[in-house]
Amino acid sequence: MADPEIKSYEPYHESRSAAVTESRPAQAVLMAIAFVFLGVFLLLPLIIVFHEALAKGVGAYTQALGEPDARSAIHLTLLVAAISVPLNVVFGISAAWAIAKFEFKGKAFLTTLIDLPFSVSPVISGLVYVLLFGAQGLLGEWLKAHGIQILFAVPGIVLATVFVTFPFVARELIPLMQEQGNGDEEAALSLGANGWQTFWYVTLPNVKWGLLYGVLLCNARAMGEFGAVSVVSGHIRGLTNTMPLHVEILYNEYNAVGAFAVASLLAGLALVTLVLKTLLEMRYGAELAATRGH
């Protein structure tokens, strides 16, 4: 008789007291909202992308991807990411280091500047480069005289991408470095390490998860950027079209399979990013927990 009664008093989760646990219907409603929202706004579009891409079979899908213009767009996108992500890693670490570790005049201004690309519409960012490097632009004459092509070419696309993505790494690192302070660096120096060793063995490992996260976000945005790149690229097929631009062109030409095939690659990139992050967390779980718990 007594046994079932005693059992019913056992809490489901020891860490949560009964007072802050919502009633079962409330829990169900909250979970339902979360799942339905994610399903409609994230999962469904993702499924549709792959569904449309494969609507005419695997053959049409691979053919669409093997088409020269598509391949050139993929190639260009990878090239742009390969240039802009490392640049922003260097920039992000330098800016975060400067802001978190020393005091100087204009620090608040620099912090605000870093956020600028988030607050400015990407189209405007692209337009700035047109005004600067375009034929009628500030530097246009000079560039033309020296035979340097920036606008409607790879350099312009890279510049626009770097501009749009530069907050990602810095924004991840600044709060992390500020929180960690200078203690570990001082300890390394006191043990005889030089500046480079201190950076390599102490500072970088301390921020590596934040850095990795920033790099993943930065890369995803660099490959997916549409607005700014669209303004500076000139949409020359096979030459200055990145994947997002190529998707738009194909879609406007009613080539649904082609558009969604390329789009599926971008979606796949997002999935790979997610899986990579999860895998790294699993592989270095103990170390990661140690980093966070300290």
């Binding site: 203690g183 570990d184 006191s190 005889g192 390490a193 301390n206 980093t291």
Partner: peptide, 29 residues
């Protein structure tokens, strides 16, 4: 510089390198 002075400094909050094992921390110098 602090490197040239060769002093052992124990920090108030220890400043142990969190991503290194105890042995690596001790061997760092």
């Amino acid at each position: 510089s602090i490197q040239e002075r060769n002093v052992g400094f124990v920090f108030q909050h220890y400043a142990l390198f969190r991503h290194m094992t105890v042995a690596d921390n001790i061997g760092f110098g």
